[in-house]
Computed example of a mutant assay.
Amino acid sequence: MTIVAGNLVWGVGRKTIVRDVSLSVRRGETLGLIGPNGSGKSSLLRLLAGLKRPRSGRVEINGRDIAGVSRRTMARQVAFVQQNAATDTNVSVRDVVRLGRTPHRSALGGWSTADEAAVSAALSRVDMHQRRAQAWQTLSGGERQRVHIARALAQAPTVMFLDEPTNHLDIHHQIEILRMVRDLDLTSIVALHDLNLAAMFCDRIVVMQEGALVECGAPADVLSQALLKNVFRIEAEVELAGSGRPHIRFCSD
């Protein structure tokens, strides 16, 4: 499913946070959003997912303006995984994932075989099926994030948006989660802080600065020494790994 955004503008009060952003995402592509803190990544992600309405501009998913699509219909096509999602409720892993089926169920409809199959498939896909009866509170941070991705998958979406899904996770879980997202048969847009992880797992990268899109392209084309200095204010060397993807070496002085 393709995503096209045209001239998106959004802000709070007199402050403009997203400034005239246009981009397109191809079917099956993993697009990374990077930029300094406050650059507008999370706000842009929510605009693209239909969770915020722009002041001006439009977003189309598969050629259809999402402004005219109901939230229920959107929830059947689009899943959103937020950073550090948490709950204080004592529920099981399976109960958390079951919430992903809500958009597909009627108010009076019971739990169906199709619902159960979707939940089981989602848990298996993130390698958490054996822990389906385990209490949510007993999971590690990486395991909880996998469960939230399973809940998103249970929606049976064609597009997944992820807002810094690796935040506060150890490097093993960061790599594990991003590899899993990349390998899903979905169109994915993910906001990331770690530039090397974005280079490793994203097909293309969008660079945000002060609410505007300043670069968009393949990691090897976008992640240059000049960009890192101008946008992120860091001195670094960029090397091409054997895979052809860039690797950033940060300078200590």
Rank of each mutant, 00 (worst) to 15 (best):
T89C: 15
R144P: 00
R53V: 14
A152H: 02
L47T: 06
E29S: 03
I189W: 04
D183T: 06
T102Y: 14
S112N: 10
V9C: 13
A226S: 15
G242T: 10
R131Y: 12
M200R: 10
A150C: 11
R146N: 05
M160N: 01
G63I: 06
E235Q: 15
A191G: 06
V18M: 07
S106A: 14
I248C: 08
E210D: 15
R151L: 07
G28W: 09
A122L: 10
A133S: 15
T73N: 08
S252V: 15
A118S: 12
T89W: 14
C216N: 13
G68N: 05
S243H: 02
V126K: 04
I175V: 13
E237L: 14
I189K: 00
P54V: 03
R14C: 12
H104G: 04
G28L: 06
K15I: 14
L162H: 02
L197R: 03
K52L: 15
A199F: 02
L153Y: 08
T89I: 15
R64E: 09
A67K: 06
E215Y: 11
M1W: 07
G6Q: 13
F232N: 05
R53L: 13
L99Y: 13
L31M: 09
E235L: 13
D183C: 02
D115K: 03
K52P: 03
C202L: 05
S120A: 15
N62D: 13
I61Y: 02
V97W: 00
G109P: 00
I66T: 03
H148N: 13
L186H: 01
Q174C: 12
H148G: 03
L8W: 01
E176N: 08
C251D: 15
V97H: 04
A107V: 15
Q145R: 11
E143N: 08
V222S: 00
S112K: 10
V69W: 02
V119P: 03
C216V: 14
I177L: 11
L184N: 05
D127P: 04
Q77W: 05
E176I: 07
L48G: 00
V238H: 07
R204E: 05
E239I: 15
A118R: 05
A218Y: 03
R101I: 07
D115C: 08
E235P: 12
H193G: 05
S43R: 08
P219W: 01
R19P: 03
P103R: 12
Q83M: 09
R182Y: 03
V147L: 08
